[in-house]
C-alpha cells in the first residue's frame, strides 16, 4: 500500500482511486459507527475522498496513511452531526435516520448497534480496523490512557451483556 500512497502523493489519480477503493470497507464501517443514515455516510466518504486528494501532499510518511485518512473521515462525520444539531434548532426537522434494510448487512448492523454508543467508535477502530491504541489516540486526539480505558469499559460491557 505504501507504493500506492506514494504514487497518489505524486498526483496519480488512478493510484489514488485504487488506494481509496481498497479502504472503502474501512471507511464505511467507521462512518457507520458514527452516522446512521447511508446518505450522510455517503457525503462523509465522498468529502473524505476529495479532501485526501487535496491534502495528500501533507502526508509525509506513507505508513501513516490509514491513520490520517481515518482522522479526516471522523472529522467529516462529526461535521455532519454538528450541522444536523444546528439545523434542528433553526429551520428543518431532520429526517428520521433511515436504516439500510438489506439483509446482507443485517447481522453486521445488529452487532454494531449492540455496542454502547460511547465506546462504539473506539471498539470499531480497535477490533475492526485493527488500529493500535497509540494510533487511535492520534486519530481521536485523546490521550492513549483514555483510549485504553474506553476499550476496557467497552469490553466489560460486552462481557456483561453476553455473559
Amino acid at each position: 500500500m505504501d507504493k500506492l500512497v506514494r504514487k497518489a502523493k505524486q498526483g496519480n489519480p488512478d493510484a489514488f482511486t485504487e488506494l481509496m477503493q481498497s479502504q472503502m470497507q474501512n471507511m464505511y464501517k467507521t462512518a457507520r459507527s458514527i452516522l446512521y443514515n447511508d446518505e450522510d455516510i455517503a457525503d462523509a466518504i465522498s468529502e473524505t475522498i476529495l479532501t485526501c486528494w487535496e491534502k495528500m501532499w501533507q502526508l509525509k510518511e506513507e505508513s501513516f496513511f490509514r491513520t490520517w485518512m481515518t482522522r479526516i473521515l471522523i472529522n467529516k462525520c462529526n461535521d455532519i452531526l454538528r450541522k444536523q444539531k444546528n439545523l434542528s434548532l433553526v429551520e428543518e426537522i431532520p429526517d428520521i435516520p433511515s436504516y439500510d434494510v438489506k439483509f446482507a448487512n443485517a447481522e453486521w448492523k445488529e452487532a454494531l448497534d449492540s455496542l454502547n454508543e460511547k465506546y462504539r467508535l473506539v471498539l470499531v477502530l480497535y477490533y475492526v480496523e485493527g488500529f493500535k491504541t497509540g494510533e487511535i489516540s492520534r486519530i481521536l486526539s485523546m490521550p492513549e490512557s483514555t483510549v485504553r480505558s474506553r476499550l476496557a469499559r467497552g469490553r466489560q460491557q460486552l462481557a456483561k451483556e453476553f455473559a
Binding site: M24, Q25, Y28, K29, D38, E39, I41, A42, I45, D100, K102, A104, N105, E107, W108, E110, A111, L112, L123, V124, Y127, V128
Partner: peptide, 12 residues
C-alpha cells in the same frame, strides 16, 4: 460479526 465484510450501499 463486526469484522466481516459488508455490502457497501449503492448511494455510498
Amino acid at each position: 460479526a463486526l469484522q466481516m465484510d459488508v455490502e457497501i450501499p449503492e448511494v455510498v
